[in-house]
Computed example of a mutant assay.
Amino acid sequence: MDNIRIETDRLILRRFEEDDIEAIYLLFSDDEVNAFLPWYPVKDRNEARDFFEKRLKGGKYCFAICRKEDDFPVGYIHAEEDDSHDFGYALRKEYWHQGIVSEASSAVIELLREEGLPYITATHDRNNPRSGAVMKRIGMGYCYSYKEQWQPKNFPVIFRMYQLNFDGQKDRVYQKYWNLYDEHFVETDI
């Protein structure tokens, strides 16, 4: 696995490492940070280590978001390698509202474009409009909404699906979620 390292004005984006367990624990143990993420918060450092092994280690487009001054991860950003190219992120709450995720996202998007991905998608819970605001800031466009019985948390969520096409096919819309869920619609007030 290549060891990609991206630097922006304020950030270093790099692979998560074994030494990052404390940072992973701080990020993924917080109830508020994890409220809209598709897993339960980790309870201790052993669970943080398991989370690292299962979800963060080895992903081609999975990066720790680190501040340049200490190279300590304060967030994560990733794009899935499947056909959704699902783009996601999380940030410790003491770093919210500073443009960090937008800055990291712009850098990762440039890498994905250079790597030849045709597009990325991203979804956010309708009750988390700030995530949608990030998607808009980085150039993604709203496509549609759908209702899913969200797992593993097992409650209904209306997700908004955004997409950014890199290859010039402006009208392409990833249809998987639209086709998968019976309740889907286009919201006009976004």
Rank of each mutant, 00 (worst) to 15 (best):
Y146C: 14
W150D: 08
A122F: 07
Y25D: 03
L180S: 14
L91D: 06
F51Q: 02
K43M: 14
E18T: 06
Y95H: 14
V42A: 04
F87R: 08
E115N: 09
Y40K: 12
F51C: 02
A48I: 04
E69S: 03
W178I: 12
D182E: 10
R5Y: 01
M1I: 11
R137Q: 08
L111H: 00
R113W: 02
E94V: 05
F36L: 03
P152Q: 00
R14F: 06
E53V: 14
E187F: 10
Q163Y: 07
D125F: 01
R15W: 08
Q175H: 07
F51N: 02
I4F: 13
F52V: 00
K170E: 15
V134F: 00
A23R: 07
N46R: 07
A104F: 08
Q149N: 09
S145Q: 13
L11S: 07
G58W: 14
Y76F: 09
L112M: 13
I65V: 15
P73F: 05
Y146K: 13
Y174V: 14
Y119Q: 01
H124E: 08
V186T: 10
E69G: 00
D30H: 10
K54S: 01
V157I: 15
I138Q: 01
V101N: 10
Q175P: 04
V74I: 15
R67W: 11
L91Q: 08
G99H: 11
K153M: 03
V74E: 05
L112Y: 07
V74R: 04
H97S: 15
D44E: 10
Y40Q: 11
I24Q: 07
K147I: 15
Y144S: 12
S105P: 02
F28L: 00
Y144L: 12
L37W: 06
I77C: 13
R55I: 02
F36Q: 03
N34G: 02
Q163A: 13
A79P: 09
N34Q: 00
W39D: 01
C66A: 06
Q149L: 14
R92D: 05
R55S: 03
P118K: 07
T188A: 10
M135N: 12
R49W: 11
G132D: 14
T121G: 08
K54Y: 04
F28I: 01
F166T: 10
E114T: 00
S131V: 09
A122Y: 08
A133I: 01
V108F: 03
R14N: 10
A122E: 09
F72E: 13
P129F: 02
P38N: 08
P38V: 04
N3R: 11
F63E: 10
G132P: 14
P118Q: 04
A23F: 04
L112G: 10
Q169Y: 02
D20M: 09
G168L: 11
E17L: 06
Q149E: 07
